[in-house]
């Protein structure tokens, strides 16, 4: 697919690079720049921000115009959302509820990425994984985390 004669993939990629470059350059200019003789902390990041803007323009203007346009492939929503949620749940529960609960909940949500799973199957897998994690990481490797905790 093309927009204004530019492949959509390159257009988005280039604009993303430009946006990151602008953001980096603006943030970097709030740090002391120093001189060429003795550069401050902002010098190199500012330069990199400008380089990113130039490269982003190159992606759009040069790489975006060549050959056959690659298709923008949208990833399947189900695995994306379930796996992302699984990681988020682990982050939110590991210190509050301990390893057993965090692993069980995160694993349970991750098993939902498979369309054909059932409540029983997911529960068994998650429960086994939390016991396994307890044995390997808590007892085996001495991970510095509580096995089970109750914050309230």
């Amino acid at each position: 697919m093309r927009v204004l004669g530019i492949n959509i993939v390159e257009l988005v990629a280039g604009l993303l690079a430009i946006a990151i470059g602008v953001f980096a350059a603006i943030t970097a200019s709030s740090y002391p720049l120093g001189t060429v003789h003795s550069m401050g902390p902002g010098y190199v990041p500012l330069a990199l921000g400008i380089i990113l803007i130039v490269l982003g323009a190159g992606i759009v203007a040069i790489e975006g115009r060549r050959g056959t346009a690659p298709k923008l492939e949208i990833p399947a929503a189900r695995p994306l959302l379930t796996i992302a949620a699984s990681v988020l749940i682990f982050a939110l529960t590991i210190e509050r509820f301990g390893l057993l609960v965090a692993v069980f909940l995160a694993a349970f949500v991750a098993t939902l990425s498979d369309r054909d799973t059932s409540l029983g199957k997911s529960s068994v897998i998650s429960a086994s994984l939390s016991v396994l994690a307890l044995v390997v990481f808590y007892y085996g490797l001495g991970l510095q985390v509580r096995a089970l905790s109750w914050p309230f």
């Binding site: 796996i83 699984s86 990681v87 682990f90 982050a91 590991i94 390893l99 965090a102 692993v103 995160a106 694993a107 349970f108 991750a110 098993t111 990425s113 498979d114 054909d116 799973t117 199957k121 897998i125 998650s126 994984l129 994690a133 990481f137 991970l143």
Partner: peptide, 13 residues
């Protein structure tokens, strides 16, 4: 279906 949650958990830990 077993590997997927195991890998995610392993990464998080």
């Amino acid at each position: 279906s077993i590997l997927c949650p195991a890998i995610v958990i392993f990464m998080c830990i």
